[in-house]
Design a binder for these strands. Structure first.
Length: 425
RNA sequence: GGAGAGAUGGCCGAGUAGGUCGAAGGCGCUCGCCUGCUAAGCGAGUAGAUGGGUAAUAGCCUGUCUCGAGGGUUCGAAUCCCUCUCUCUCCGCCA
């Protein structure tokens, strides 16, 4: 959410941001509404001021036995007016709030202009693409042949885009989660959280999923519970409505969670394999920091996520999203894309964003720069570190052998009971 | 799920026969004084949000709202009524 005052004073900045994003938004309507709101507010506050003054006067008169009758009658009238105006103002505020919640964040100045993902900028790449003496197979074939992933039973038990991991597959998934958590906790200094997987509507609004993206999420029927699409939601809302200690910043958290996505509108894309599932596992990194730190913190966040891929020996590249591809709440985003040999493309495996104060304003997370100073909004950042299902898929494809077995990356073996190679059972 | 108790400022905690209560007191914090240092002591200050005015960021003046949330009664509500949420205790159930 942007600050109303900021929009009021810098409408051209907001307009330019919307244009860069290619977003259609009726800024004029918002500004008109703001005008209307302030006018009404001023009028009703004058009435209230009078009522407060006269009420005191009445109290005084009653004490001294003076005549208060006429005043009371008059105030009855005024109170009625106030009630009506308050109702009007509430309506205007609701509409105003509706507008504000739909307004995306302003892109960081360094974000390249572009229409869609084709205009994203490659920043750097790492690793040597594996050379195969045979045609590399897709991870879903490998997974089924090795009997470590079961898509058929997943759709029987739940539906399309659900799956079971089995045997070494289940263990590999778990190994990846533990490996990532350990890395970020022990080496990168994050504090581990294990969050709730169901959150309330207020939390979803805090991070920006609601009200705009309700269709992408699962909701528990009849209750104010949503299945989280990412641990970003519970972890960012961890500090909601709080004023945190200045010297506690930056605060860095890492959390494993299952993630649930309805993926409305994605039908037909990536129908096979682990790439796009309704439920998947992810290890998420979340940071809260001072505004002046967030640029650097984003760079460090990306490095922390990259480290996972390096240690796993998976080739990847880092891409800076252009204005048109940038997410609703993000000011700047780097995607990490891992090499997928079967399709011969890089696929997103992590998305690392600086949300500046956009989420913090919605979620009301602040800190005091100095002991007596006014509390200001922190900056929030997050990034996958990494999406586990996609990582497992990448391992299967990159580490596959001519005989269909898959070599387990060195760093995961301690987590796999020493297993060095996955063979069919 | 059942029964009961509670929700007040950064924290603790007064305040219910409705009217100078945005709120006593304490702690904490800030500034100053005092003091070889530290501690103690003394004095002053110390909620947030928001509209308007003024001021080239600070600040200052002024209005409004906020005592869990929402609604109601009333000229006037922290105080009365209704609904909801959360917390605690006991019971039940359960991993």
């Amino acid at each position: 959410m942007l600050e109303l005052k900021f929009i009021r004073k810098n409408p051209e900045v907001v307009r330019a941001a919307l244009e860069k994003r290619g977003v259609d938004f009726d800024l004029e309507a918002l500004l008109d509404l703001d005008d209307e709101w302030r006018q009404k507010l001023f009028t009703v506050e004058q009435l209230k001021s009078r009522r407060n003054a006269v009420s005191e006067e009445i109290a005084r008169l009653k004490k001294t036995g003076g005549p208060a009758k006429a005043l009371i009658t008059e105030m009855r009238e005024v109170s009625q007016q106030i009630k009506e105006m308050d109702a009007e103002i509430r309506q205007v505020e609701e509409r105003l709030q509706g507008f504000l919640l739909q307004l995306p964040n302003i892109p960081h100045p360094l974000v390249p202009f572009g229409r869609d993902e084709a205009d994203n900028q490659e920043i750097r790449s790492w690793g040597v693409l594996p050379a195969f003496s045979f045609a590399p197979r897709p991870h879903w074939e490998l997974g089924e042949a090795l009997n470590i992933i079961d898509f058929g039973r997943g759709s029987k038990v739940s539906g399309a885009r659900f799956s079971f991991y089995r045997g070494a597959g289940a263990r590999l998934e778990r190994a990846l989660i533990n490996f990532m958590l350990d890395l970020h906790v022990d080496r990168h200094g994050y504090t581990e959280l294990f969050p709730p997987f169901l959150v309330n509507g207020r939390s979803m609004t805090g991070t920006g999923q609601l009200p705009k993206f309700a269709a992408d999420m699962y909701k528990v029927e009849g209750e104010d519970y949503y299945l989280i699409p990412t641990a970003e939601v519970p972890v960012t809302n961890f500090l909601r409505d709080e004023i945190v200690e200045a010297d506690s910043l930056p605060q860095k958290y890492v959390a494993y969670s299952a993630c649930f996505r309805a993926e409305a509108g994605a039908a037909g894309r990536d129908t096979r394999g682990l790439i796009r599932q309704h439920q998947f596992n992810k290890v998420e990194l979340v940071k809260f920091c001072r505004p002046e730190e967030s640029d650097d913190e984003l760079e460090m966040l990306v490095r922390d996520a990259e480290e996972v891929l390096k240690l796993l020996g998976l080739p990847y590249r880092v891409v800076l999203l252009c204005t048109g591809d940038l997410g609703f709440a993000a000011a700047k985003t780097y995607d990490l894309e891992v090499w997928m040999p079967y399709q011969g493309v890089y696929r997103e495996i992590s998305s690392c964003s600086n949300f500046t104060d956009f989420q913090a304003r919605r979620a009301n997370i602040r800190y005091r720069p100095a002991p007596k100073a006014k509390a200001v909004f922190v900056h929030t950042l997050n990034g996958s570190g990494l999406a586990v299902g996609r990582t497992l898929a990448a391992i299967l494809e990159n580490y596959q052998q001519p005989d269909g077995t898959v070599v387990v990356p060195e760093v995961l073996r301690p987590y796999m009971g020493g297993l060095a190679r996955i063979e069919p059972e």
